[in-house]
Simulated scan of single mutants.
Amino acid sequence: MKKRDKIIYWIATVWLSLGMLSTGIVQLIKMEEEVQSINALGYPTFLLPILGVWKILGVIAILIPKFPLVKEWAYAGFFFTMTGAMTSHIIVGDEMITLFGPTLLLALTITSWYFRPADRKTLK
């Protein structure tokens, strides 16, 4: 793996991890703004801690060595969660600014996945 690719991978992965960890914690503790946001999207509040726990577990899976299949599932979960968030905001007619967070996290997910080292891939 080229040094440039390693740098891109780690920058994207660290920012992705920070973003998912922080939003996961916010969802886990059911911060008032997050409760209002998920209710405005038409989803029940009980989904917040579920999403929060899975995001935190996904961050752990991506950061720890080995377990490439678990990493693939974590990346897939992040991809589905962020595209679902983007779609939900569009469907309810939210302002375009609400797409910034999920779009950024989606871009970081794709970048981290694409540039991951060979020992973090299921097929080498």
Rank of each mutant, 00 (worst) to 15 (best):
I110E: 08
T98H: 08
K66P: 01
K2A: 10
M31L: 12
N39K: 15
M82V: 01
D94W: 02
L104T: 15
I90M: 11
K6A: 06
G42S: 11
W54C: 03
R4P: 00
S112Y: 08
T81Y: 09
L105P: 02
Q27Y: 01
K71A: 07
D5G: 02
I64W: 11
L123K: 14
A74R: 13
A107R: 07
I91H: 09
L106F: 10
T109K: 06
G19T: 02
F80R: 06
D119Q: 09
P65L: 06
A61E: 08
M20T: 13
E32T: 14
A12D: 10
P44Y: 06
K121G: 06
W15R: 03
L106T: 05
I110Q: 12
V59D: 14
L123E: 14
I60H: 09
D119G: 00
A40I: 00
Q36I: 08
T98I: 01
V53Y: 06
M20S: 11
L51C: 01
K55T: 01
L16Y: 02
F78Q: 04
Y9D: 13
T45Q: 15
L106C: 05
I91C: 03
I25E: 05
L18N: 07
L51H: 03
L108H: 13
K71G: 04
V59C: 11
A85C: 05
E32D: 15
V92C: 05
T122V: 15
P49I: 01
S37K: 07
W10S: 08
E32N: 12
L99C: 04
G84S: 03
L105I: 01
L108V: 03
W54E: 03
M86D: 03
T103V: 01
P102W: 00
K55P: 01
Q27K: 15
I7V: 15
P65F: 02
K3A: 12
K66C: 07
G58S: 04
L104H: 08
T81C: 00
T109C: 11
F46N: 14
S88M: 01
F78G: 00
A12R: 13
K30D: 08
M31R: 13
G42E: 14
M82C: 05
N39L: 08
V53A: 13
L123T: 15
M96R: 09
P65G: 10
F100D: 04
V35K: 15
W10I: 01
L41T: 09
V14K: 11
T83Q: 07
D119C: 02
T13N: 14
R4D: 11
S88N: 13
A61L: 07
E32Y: 09
D119E: 14
S37Y: 12
K30I: 00
F67K: 14
A40T: 03
Y114N: 07
K71P: 05
F67R: 15
L18V: 14
L104A: 11
T111Q: 12
F46C: 04
Q27T: 02
K2V: 00
I64F: 12
W15A: 14
G84H: 06
T98D: 05
V92F: 06
F46I: 09
K121A: 14
T111K: 10
I38A: 04
T109V: 04
F115I: 02
L108C: 04
E33T: 13
T98L: 04
L28N: 05
K3Q: 13
W54I: 14
L51R: 02
A12E: 04
R4G: 08
D119P: 00
E72R: 11
Y75P: 07
I60C: 07
A76N: 12
E95Y: 07
M86V: 00
S37P: 00
I38K: 03
I7D: 13
